[in-house]
């Protein structure tokens, strides 16, 4: 598999795009890795698009670009809610929000990452002092006074399914990422009830240096091979 003849499937995690499609359903909460499309799994996005799944709640850093990353789903109107830090690079997200077709919950980028991380590490919430005086950030959130200072209670985020993009996975789903395509992926990987990793290369057990593994396979339920990025980047 993926050019490595020694790869077996001892843990049953290695599967195909077609097989994991059963986990994507209308109305589900879907968390995705990536930052401006960099590190967002392209084949899974196309699979979800083709299956016709809609009414999604999407959780991730941003809404990509109209033809890049999660942006493909957003620009096709497949999401009813987005929790993100930024939607500015996808005009469809702004348009649908103004038309009332898309609910957008903005979360400051690093706090969003920590909310996802909290979900992934089994904590219910974090305390934050970011954006406390900002109407949009603070709206409806409880406050808690600790050691004489007020903080916002920011709830943890989890999802029915998390999708991530990694450079390599071994049979157990241990993951390493590629440069700045790591971004939110290790956090998102921990926060899914089911986590699916789309990877550029699947390698045999023992092929990864245990010291270099970023996401332990404990958090990864399924591994599928990627067909690679099939969109044109904004800089190209």
């Amino acid at each position: 598999m993926a050019g490595d003849s020694k790869v077996e499937n001892k843990f049953g995690k290695i599967t195909t795009l077609e097989k994991v499609m059963e986990y994507f359903k209308d109305g589900m909460t879907l968390m995705f890795g990536g930052f401006g499309g960099v590190g967002t799994p392209p084949s899974l996005i196309d699979g979800i698009l083709e299956k016709g799944v809609s009414n999604l709640t999407l959780i991730g850093n941003d809404t990509g670009f109209p033809h890049i990353g999660i942006g493909k789903l957003v620009s096709q109107g497949r999401a009813s809610k987005v929790i993100a830090s930024h939607i500015g690079s996808n005009p469809f997200a702004g348009q649908f929000m103004h038309e009332g077709k898309l609910e957008v919950e903005f979360s400051p980028q690093g706090i969003l990452a920590e909310r996802i991380r909290a979900g992934g590490v089994g904590l219910p919430a974090i305390l934050s002092d970011i954006g406390m005086d900002n109407e949009i950030v603070a709206k409806g959130k409880p406050r808690l006074c600790l050691n004489g200072r007020d903080y916002l209670v920011e709830s943890a985020l989890t999802a029915e399914v998390s999708i991530v993009y990694a450079k390599k996975a071994d049979e157990y789903g241990n993951l390493i990422y590629d440069k700045s395509a790591r971004n939110t992926n290790p956090l998102v990987a921990m926060a899914g009830d089911i986590t699916i990793a789309e990877v550029e290369e699947i390698i045999s057990l023992g092929s990864l240096d245990p010291e270099e593994i970023i996401t332990p396979g404990v958090f990864v339920d399924y591994v599928i091979p990627s067909k690679g990025v099939n969109w044109t980047w904004a800089w190209e």
């Binding site: 939607i87 500015g88 929000m97 400051p108 980028q109 970011i130 954006g131």
Partner: peptide
């Protein structure tokens, strides 16, 4: 309304 990204932090 693009969102705050990382600007607040």
């Amino acid at each position: 309304v693009p969102g705050m990204g990382g600007a607040m932090e």
